[in-house]
Design a protein around this nucleic acid. Structure first.
Ligand SMILES: [Mn+2]
Ligand SMILES: [Mn+2]
Ligand SMILES: [Mn+2]
Ligand SMILES: [Mn+2]
Lengths: 224, 224
DNA sequence: ATTTATTTTTAGACAAGACTAAATTTAATT
DNA sequence: AATTAAATTTAGTCTTGTCTAAAAATAAAT
C-alpha cells in the first residue's frame, strides 16, 4: 500500500473533506450526516455512503450514528485544499482584476488542481499572503493556520474603533452590498451610535457618517 | 453549481474533443476509432460509446464504421480547450518559474477550468501571447489560429540559417535534452555540415559548434 | 471471389457517486 | 416506560464512463 501522503482523493472526496473541515471549525463536536448533507446540498444517504469510504481511507473517525471527526491526516489534507482555494482567490483578485464577490466559484474549481510545485510557486508569486480577499487565513504548507484576533462589528461599544478585517457571510450579495456602502477590508471605522430598537449602528468611515443595519454588523469582522 | 452554458461538456467529453481536434490537424481524413483510443490510452469500445454521445450533442459528424469529423461548433469548442491549455502553459513558464518540460501535466488539469472571465483576464495578464512555450500557436477566442511558417531543422541546406520556433516532439525527455544542448526557442542557428551516413548535422549556435542527431533535426522547427 | 485479418460496434459487467424509499437507531415527548 | 419524532443507515436504482468478450462490418490477401 502507498504511504498516506501519496494517496489521491477524488474531486468528490475532496469536497466532503473540505465540508467536514469547515464544519469542525465552528462546531467542535462530531459532525452529523445531516450537517454535511446540507453544506454540500446533497442527500443524507449519499453522505452516509461517502463517510464509509473516507473512514476506510483513514481521513475520518466514524462510528455508526455518532457523526464523524477528521483524523490528523484528514485535517491536513482538508487544510491543503482550503490553502489552495484561498491562494487562488488572492491570485484572482490581485492579478486578474476579479472582485471579491466573483472569486469563489472559480476557486472551487482551481482548488482541486494537483501540483505541489504549482502551489509553492503561486504562493511565492503572490508574496506569501497570510489572508484571502475575504479576510480568511491561509493555512501554511503543513495545514496550520494562525487565527487573527477579530470581533464582529456588532460587539463594538459606542465610540470604539476598529479596522475591517473579514466577513462572516461571504455571499456575493453581501459582498456587493458592502462595496456599495464603501466598506472594504482595511478601512477604519468608529461606532458613533448604537440604536436599541433595531440594533442598527451609526458609524464613521472615510470621514463620512453611515447607517449600518444589524445584519451587516453581525457579519463584518473588525480588529479593535 | 455552474451556469448551464458553462458545463455543457464533461471532463471526459472535453478530452475526447481535444484528441479529435489534434488528430484532425495532422490527418485531414475522418478520424478512426482506433486512433482516438490510442491517443487517449483507452479502449476502442469506450471510444465507440463516447462517439455516439458526442454525435448526439452535435460536436462531431459520425457514420458507423466511417470515422468522425468535428463540426464547426465542435472545432470551436475543442480549440477553446487548447487555447486554455496553452495560455496556462505560458503562465506557468513566464510567471511561476516552470520549465517547458514541466508544464504539460498541470495544463492538462487547468484547461478544464470553466470561467470565461478567467481566460480573458489571464490572456491580458500575459500580454496576449501568440504562442505557448513549445512554439505552438494559441487559438484566439473564436478558435482561429494563425499558423506560422516553419520548417524542420532537417530540411535546412548547408550554410542555411534559421531561428528555433517550435518542437514537434514535446515530451519531457526531448525538451530536457534540448536544454542540455543549449537549444531553446528564439536562438539562431546555422547549418555548417550535413553528414550523409547518419543524417546528423553540424550546426553553429551561440557562436559554438554543435553536433546534432537526426532525431533532433526532425523534431525541431526553425523559421528560415 | 473467397478467405483471412483488422477494425469497429454491440452486449454485458463493473465502479463511483448520486438518488428515492424503506428500515433502523437515537432523541424527544408524553 | 411507552410512544412519537427525527436522524441515520440500508436497499435498490440510475447515470457516466470504463472494461472484456463476442459479433458484425470493412479491408487485405490469397
Ligand atoms: Mn471562497
Ligand atoms: Mn475566501
Ligand atoms: Mn501541453
Ligand atoms: Mn504546449
Amino acid at each position: 500500500m502507498y504511504p498516506k501522503f501519496l494517496r489521491m482523493f477524488s474531486l468528490s472526496e475532496e469536497n466532503y473533506l473540505k465540508a467536514i473541515y469547515h464544519l469542525e471549525i465552528i462546531s467542535n463536536k462530531g459532525i452529523s450526516t445531516n450537517a454535511i448533507a446540507e453544506k454540500l446540498e446533497t442527500k443524507a444517504s449519499s453522505v452516509s455512503d461517502m463517510i464509509k469510504k473516507l473512514s476506510e481511507k483513514e481521513v475520518i473517525i466514524y462510528k455508526k450514528y455518532q457523526g464523524v471527526t477528521l483524523t490528523d491526516f484528514g485535517k491536513k489534507t482538508a487544510a491543503n485544499i482550503v490553502r489552495k482555494h484561498r491562494l487562488w482567490e488572492v491570485f484572482l483578485v490581485e492579478k486578474l482584476n476579479f472582485s471579491w464577490d466573483e472569486v469563489h466559484d472559480v476557486a472551487e474549481q482551481l482548488e482541486h488542481i494537483k501540483s505541489p510545485k504549482l502551489i509553492h510557486e503561486l504562493d511565492a508569486f503572490l508574496g506569501f499572503p497570510s489572508h484571502d480577499p475575504h479576510g480568511d487565513p491561509i493555512p501554511d504548507n503543513d495545514g496550520n493556520l494562525k487565527v487573527l484576533e477579530k470581533s464582529l462589528l456588532a460587539t463594538l461599544s459606542k465610540n470604539e474603533s476598529g479596522v475591517c478585517v473579514g466577513v462572516k457571510d461571504s455571499s456575493a450579495e453581501f459582498l456587493q452590498y458592502l462595496d456599495k456602502k464603501g466598506i472594504t477590508l482595511g478601512k477604519e471605522l468608529t461606532v458613533l451610535e448604537k440604536e436599541d430598537f433595531d440594533d442598527s449602528l451609526s458609524i464613521q468611515i472615510d470621514g463620512k457618517k453611515l447607517s449600518v443595519s444589524n445584519k451587516i454588523a453581525t457579519n463584518l469582522y473588525v480588529k479593535k
